[in-house]
Design a protein around this nucleic acid. Structure first.
Length: 189
DNA sequence: TGTCCGATATCCT
DNA sequence: GGATATCGGACAT
């Protein structure tokens, strides 16, 4: 059962937490790859100095952040890694959630904890690129989210976001990174 | 048009 | 712990 629009139009911090345990489905040809979301980070522009939409900035890159919740915002960092974000809220609120790590879900029992334990790596695994920018998760035939597994509140860890020291102490110390406790597939163990 | 630099991963010491 | 690969976007010129 695919997640519907209303899921994505709620407050970003709630969504960032509730995305944990959800299944990300990626269809490549007639193969279906499934990853359980185990780590996220919230970016709450325009007030959040660490967000690309800080100050209400609209550019060629950030304009997809201003779509309504449920779209994909994807961009390149360091000249080589794609970063997959899910847009939340509405056009007045350019907010999003960065997907930082997935636990691969396979029919067979191969266990690879290093396949998608980082925002760049999960995009390599699932072959994401610029063509996914602006894709609608409620309609797309090649990527969407499903209900997945229920994660208890006591199993969710809140921590500092990664790699955003440039935003200054106030914003960089906000605990807007969320991951599943004791999960082997999160990044930066 | 030019310069600067990053929401990372990996290899090196 | 530190260096570095590698390039498009942002913004200044």
């Amino acid at each position: 059962m695919r997640l519907l629009r209303k899921f994505y139009k709620r407050p970003t911090l709630n969504i960032a937490k509730e995305l944990l345990g959800k299944y990300l489905i990626r269809k490549i040809g007639n193969k279906k790859l499934v990853g359980k979301i185990v780590e996220t980070e919230a970016y709450i522009g325009p007030k959040d100095k660490a967000a690309h939409s800080f100050g209400g900035k609209i550019t060629k890159r950030t304009k997809t952040e201003y779509l309504i919740g449920g779209h994909i915002y994807i961009y390149l960092v360091y000249g080589m890694y794609w970063q997959l974000n899910i847009v939340t809220q509405t056009a007045e609120k350019p907010e999003c959630v960065l997907i930082r790590a997935l636990e691969p879900v396979f029919q067979d029992k191969i266990l690879n904890t290093k396949l998608a334990n980082g925002p760049g790596k999960l995009c390599q695994w699932l072959k994401f690129n610029k063509s996914f920018d602006g894709e609608d998760l409620t309609k797309s035939k090649r990527i969407w989210l499903e209900k997945g597994e229920k994660i208890k509140k006591s199993q969710i860890i809140c921590a500092k976001r990664i790699g955003i020291d440039y935003a200054g102490p106030y914003w960089s110390k906000k605990h807007w990174r969320f991951y599943i406790k004791d999960n082997l597939f999160v990044s930066k163990k």
